[in-house]
């Protein structure tokens, strides 16, 4: 009398919405890496002189660059939101018997995000 082992398909993640969303979350890392490479190229162009750098900056205006940036932005924002929403799972804090509300923990990260974004924008664009 044998037990039956049900095979697991490699497309298990397509079977349910929650799994699909999980996979999308995992794939955001590809876009994160993509932007890292972009930033690295930007810095590399700095070492190649004003002309090379200027050409690179001009290329940012091309439709392809804008499109890639927008797609990357969507995926990176999905990373940001899922990342912050998971922080209360990891950062479990108690005040006596009361647990600090999860919304408060996540909310703190969102506020921090806005503050950091303003500072970065100010440094990169204005200061």
């Amino acid at each position: 009398m044998s037990t039956y082992h049900r095979p697991v398909s490699n497309t298990w993640w397509l079977k349910r919405k929650t799994y699909i969303l999980f996979m999308i979350r995992e794939l955001t890392s590809v876009f994160v890496a993509g932007y890292c490479i972009f930033l690295l190229v930007l810095v590399y162009k700095l070492t190649q002189g004003a002309d090379a750098y200027g050409d690179f900056m001009a290329a940012l205006k091309s439709p392809i660059s804008v499109a890639l940036h927008l797609i990357t932005l969507i995926f990176v924002l999905y990373h940001t939101i899922t990342w912050f929403n998971l922080t209360p799972k990891i950062l479990v804090l108690y005040r006596g018997e009361e647990r600090i509300p999860q919304g408060l923990v996540a909310g703190t990260f969102y506020v921090g995000w806005v503050v950091v974004s303003v500072i970065v924008a100010w440094l990169v664009l204005g200061a």
């Binding site: 660059s65 804008v66 990357t72 990176v76 924002l77 940001t80 995000w113």
Partner: peptide, 19 residues
């Protein structure tokens, strides 16, 4: 954490604001 905090604004800068 670095990507979550800093990348969105950077992408907006290099992808939309500056171009």
């Amino acid at each position: 954490m670095v990507a979550a905090m800093i990348f969105p604004i950077l992408i907006i800068i290099t992808g939309i604001l500056v171009p």
